[in-house]
């Protein structure tokens, strides 16, 4: 698009690692925060050079208590096939899975990215994933986890918390979310370089970054605000369901290291795909 000089869109939602890569590649606009909101009012890591945070979501574990007799207590129970036999669904992507694999292998959350930056760490993570590879069903679209649980295709699945909450609230499914060892990430919005209506795009970014607007999203899907001063605006019934609600940060959790995935993402994706194909 940017290469052909024909940019039909003015805004694009992207994952954090993609923001960093797109910034390097020069296909995303470097943002002028004076037109958006004070940069220091954002949760750390959610206001990047080429992308501004939209919401915070949790990579969590979900299960159906009517199927699993014993409740898992941590996302890392994914790797315990003796206690929880059966298929489990995971996202067809290296990010999060490699982190969880290392933590399940005994690496402390604080050291995960340090270990994963070494070749030995990568081997170790894939070795751990190898132990459950034959039990994994891979999902690549956000709606699949809920579907896989509903059809009882899997006994547990990793998921984005909002999708599972939707299935619980709207479709009255009996699913449960395990927050312990969740990984927190941010959805980002960027302006592609060469967009025709840059000023309009900035206006939109400024609008959604106002604390009360930033908090509104939680009423539609249970993803948390990224403004530090937005919590008081969140609807009271939505607040306890958010990934960054105080209750959900009591156990172990990890904030996804976007720098790491910006640097190593491409090579790890390649390696992950080769590993999958074998």
């Amino acid at each position: 698009m940017v290469e052909t000089g024909n940019v039909p869109i003015d805004l694009v939602t992207v994952e954090t690692a993609t923001v960093l890569q797109g910034c390097d590649a020069g296909i995303l606009e470097r943002l002028d925060y004076s037109k958006i909101a004070p940069r220091d009012k954002f949760i750390q890591g959610s206001a990047l050079d080429c992308g501004v945070g939209l919401d915070a979501y949790g990579d969590i574990l979900a299960y159906d208590p009517t199927v699993l007799k014993e409740a898992p207590t941590s996302v890392l129970d994914l790797f315990d096939t003796t206690k929880f036999p059966g298929k489990r669904a995971m996202r067809k992507f290296p990010a999060q899975n490699l982190e969880w694999a290392l933590m399940a292998d005994g690496v402390a959350p604080a050291d995960v990215y340090k270990v994963l930056a070494t070749p030995e760490g990568v081997v170790r993570a894939f070795k751990k994933l190898d132990t459950i590879k034959k039990d994994i069903v891979w999902w690549d679209a956000g709606a699949q986890p809920a579907q896989l649980l509903a059809s009882k295709e899997v006994v547990m699945t990793t998921a984005w918390n909002g999708r599972i909450q939707n299935a619980i609230d709207t479709d009255k499914k009996p699913f449960k979310i395990v927050w312990n060892n969740q990984i927190l990430e941010y959805d980002m919005i960027s302006i592609p370089k060469g967009a025709r209506n840059t000023e309009l795009a900035y206006k939109y970014l400024a609008y959604i970054s106002e604390p009360k607007n930033n908090a509104k999203l939680a009423s539609y899907i249970t993803y948390g605000p990224v403004r530090t001063d937005a919590a008081s605006f969140v609807a009271p019934d939505a607040l306890p369901k958010l990934p960054n609600a105080p209750d959900h940060l009591k156990g172990a959790y990890l904030v996804a290291d976007t720098e790491f995935w910006g640097d190593y993402g491409e090579d790890l994706v390649k390696r992950f795909n080769a590993w999958l194909a074998q």
């Binding site: 290469e3 390097d24 590649a25 020069g26 640097d263 491409e266 090579d267 390649k270």
Partner: peptide, 23 residues
């Protein structure tokens, strides 16, 4: 010319890891 990214990507296909090094 703005073609650095193209080059980085192309070299990376032959030499994994080259992308970030070129950039």
């Amino acid at each position: 010319k703005g073609t650095a990214y193209e080059l980085a990507k192309s070299l990376n296909a032959r030499l994994p890891g080259a992308r970030s090094q070129v950039l």
